[in-house]
Nucleic acid binder design. Structure first.
Lengths: 165, 165, 165, 165
DNA sequence: TTTT
DNA sequence: TTTT
């Protein structure tokens, strides 16, 4: 009887941090910015642009995707849930930090070039016929794709649909 | 080029706090719980239930709606955006708090009784033919309504659609 | 530069239809009802309840989940995208049918019993310690779970999070 | 116990059709395209781009917004619910058409110019200090705005927040 | 019929 | 700390 759903489109603030644990699991995290454009009211009041920073946390299959493709500046579509965790800071004071635990991460092309979507979508689809990105971290690169309620990056994206309709 | 969207269904943790300002504006806030049911893994590991608390903030027209109808225990559907603000605590330490700024709040009946939705939906609809809730805060009351991509509580909900289809 | 996202919570209208193809692929489909509660306007006009029927289509991993667990009456959370396809009817007239292609399907308990969520969540999690539903199709059964931006039924749901936080 | 929610980002296929009724109500409708980018599978299979057309229906306050600002080519963010209605075609055959009844419509800038968002947002905010678009239908114009869980076009968008935080 |  |  509960729903906790977040949908974000924004830009990555810095290269993801990826940590591996002895258990074999891993976690990737990075900041994502969403921006509300400023405007001016009828009475002349200027409402400035406002940028919101979200702490994105990725686990399991999403870790390798993030590690391989997500960079500072990447334009992303992120679905997930809100989680607030507590920790004690250096002064022993209880602190709260709210994070978005991602269930889905997709590139969201910001409009410009007709990006090649195939290579970034599937961890298992490495031997495809598409050209690989040559200099993946040179500024604006986005293996991006349009999102149609973006299919799960790993389980469904690039599988063939050999169905009669 | 940005999207910051949150959709929650959960229960209100305590009666809302409503504050009025000299400017004439007002703000209502309350905690909302969403719960992830626990489960047991194949290997026997027990994953306990997990409850997430969200700080909901309502402004403008939503304030009077919240003040009038939302109580501890209310089952709500909330749409909004994530905002993190900072403040200095009593020790002058910068603190962060993440809130959900609501764009839409609707009652979400948790299934049981065929609740009467009309009275809770519209601030302008006070003289309707429906009975008012008598003891609005006695436990499980929910003026609730099913949600069909719930229409804005105040601008669209109970207006007649005198259209030919 | 595109988004096509649907989120539904409703009830299954009849047992799913599952079809298998020579290629090895399969498809499951079933109707899902969402209901808008009726209400009475201030002027006395009665707006009746309205039920919307959605054609849900599931593919790949979701097929076996649907086949095994989804029944007439099931309360479901469905995420997906809208797709309209055309076909020629028996009179050779072009017809349109709009479907929701599911990316995620979860049970959504309608409140009542503290349902046991584990068994319905993971196709690979059959040997867990939880009791199986005995009479899975006797009316109100729902292996259901609360949804926290429900994790992918198959790729993420019941995996252990052996992480330090 | 129901949710019927659609979120779309796409482009308008042709200028909206606006109809007025004797009752004083009005309705606007237009097609919106969302596109799934094509890709090539590992085995060489080419999956072509796929465009989905959605029938958007706007009522009440949204009508005047649509009439004034939405044009063929406009990049829009649309929230609403799915509705399928029936009608008898010229041969007396029952036909179905699925529409998206919009609860919210916002411009979604496709990246390029730093568009001025103020004028398109609020029907009541006509005397603001922002310049009005001079030739609103000359191709690419978009009064657009970034969307932060976009605030209701008419009830909340450009109101001042004269709150102390 | 739109966009990239 | 990102983008427009």
């Amino acid at each position: 009887m509960s729903l906790n759903k977040v949908i974000l489109i924004g830009n990555v603030g810095k290269d993801p941090d990826v940590r591996y644990f002895d258990s074999g699991s891993a976690i990737a995290s990075f900041p994502l910015a969403t921006s509300e454009r400023g405007y001016t009211l009828a009475n002349g009041t200027v409402i400035p642009e406002r940028t919101e920073w979200h702490n994105i946390v990725a686990r399991r299959d999403l870790v390798s995707f993030v590690e391989k493709w997500v960079k500072k500046g990447s334009g992303l579509y992120v679905e997930g849930k809100i989680r607030t965790r507590t920790y004690d800071d250096q002064n022993g004071i209880k602190r709260y930090v709210t994070e978005i635990h991602a269930d889905r991460i997709e590139f969201y092309s910001t409009g410009s070039r007709p990006a090649d979507s195939s290579m970034a979508q599937t961890a298992t689809n490495t031997s495809n016929t598409m050209s690989q990105p040559v200099q993946p971290n040179t500024g604006y690169q986005q293996p991006g794709t349009a999102i149609q309620s973006p299919s799960p990056s790993f389980s469904e994206s690039n599988e063939a649909d050999d169905l009669p309709f």
